[in-house]
Design a binder for these strands. Structure first.
Length: 304
DNA sequence: ATCCAGGATGTAT
DNA sequence: ATACATCATGGA
């Protein structure tokens, strides 16, 4: 077992692990005590979280550290235990390389966005692995966050490679090949409902190479969104989620039910009748380049 | 029981 | 291009 720590108190904008991995943007992180996405208000400020990427297990928690003004989750260090050197991995997965101060500074002078940034200071976007992110947001259609999480956990348990680490068994997210080989009925039995054939057919597209992340990376934002809708079960909204939470398109603003409500109540002039046009308007209202950051803060803020 | 949840698809216009 | 019904499932 390798261990290490990453000082995060002095990162621009700081860092908050709990809100980053439990804000409904990622379904790839698990609280070690099994209470991920439980809406009990249970304090997870110094809880261990883990994820499995590329066959490696990474456990991490945030502690206050020696820093005199470090309070609770706002500062301190990330402590990690892993099967590999997790320093570069965590910087990548948790976007510790983002200049969060600059991102907040670029946000609009707007009461809703400012309160959201204020309420969850240090929350960062994630860089989820592409396939896991794609499947989890296909499953997200008309689902509550906790159940989306439970579906991904069930998929990993049934189809994911098992990895032994420090006396425990961990499950990787399934490969495209494994999910492509699953039957629709098997996936329905895991509670996926009408999303079951979407997941199977999309896994097939990735497994055969007919359509992969490489066909999307590098495209201009709106072309990338259009390209992603080639996958089955992926419309504009899910495509925006994958662009934002996996492929690093920070300008993507997923128009989900919460944001649509926010548009009605706070930005009525941004409602333009179509996804594409409303998206452009709210993207501009949210500051353009980092609009997706504002969207994720507002989503988390409104949902709590 | 009825409604709703980070929507997408197929079909008709 | 836009409007509409339909699609599973579990929790409140």
């Amino acid at each position: 077992m390798l261990t290490g720590s990453i000082p995060v108190a002095d990162l621009p904008g700081g860092f908050d692990l709990q809100s980053t991995v439990e804000s409904g943007q990622s379904y790839c992180w698990h609280r070690a005590d099994g209470r991920t996405y439980e809406r009990t208000g249970a304090y997870g400020g110094s809880a261990w979280y883990y994820t499995v990427v590329d066959g490696e297990v990474v456990r991490v928690r945030q502690r206050a550290g020696d820093d005199a003004n470090a309070t609770g989750t706002a500062g301190g260090v990330l402590e990690w235990e892993a099967t590999t050197d997790a320093d570069p991995l965590l910087v990548d997965l948790l976007r510790l390389d983002d200049d969060l101060d600059a991102i907040v500074d670029a946000s609009p002078d707007d009461p809703l966005v400012e309160s959201a940034y204020d309420a969850y200071a240090g929350m960062r976007l994630v860089r989820d692995p592409f396939f896991a992110c794609l499947v989890s947001f296909i499953c997200s259609a008309q689902m509550r966050v906790k159940r989306i999480y439970d579906m991904q956990t069930a998929l990993a348990r049934e189809y994911g490679e098992t990895i032994a680490f420090d006396g425990d068994t961990y499950h990787a997210f399934p490969t495209p090949e494994r999910l492509a080989d699953a039957t629709e009925d098997e996936l329905r039995d895991l509670g996926l409902g009408y999303r079951a054939p979407y997941v199977q057919r999309t896994a097939e597209l990735v497994a055969t190479g007919e359509m992969t992340a490489d066909d999307v990376r590098g495209l201009p934002y709106e072309e990338a969104r259009e390209a992603l809708t080639t996958f089955v079960g992926v419309g504009d909204k899910v495509a925006d989620c994958v662009l934002l939470f996996s492929l690093g398109y920070l300008e993507a603003v997923p128009l989900d039910t919460w944001i649509r409500t926010a548009i009605e109540e706070h930005y009525p002039d941004c409602e333009r009748g179509s996804y594409a046009e409303t998206s452009r308007a709210i993207r501009e209202a949210f500051g353009g380049e980092y609009a997706g950051y504002a969207q994720t803060y507002v989503f988390h803020y409104l949902r709590n």
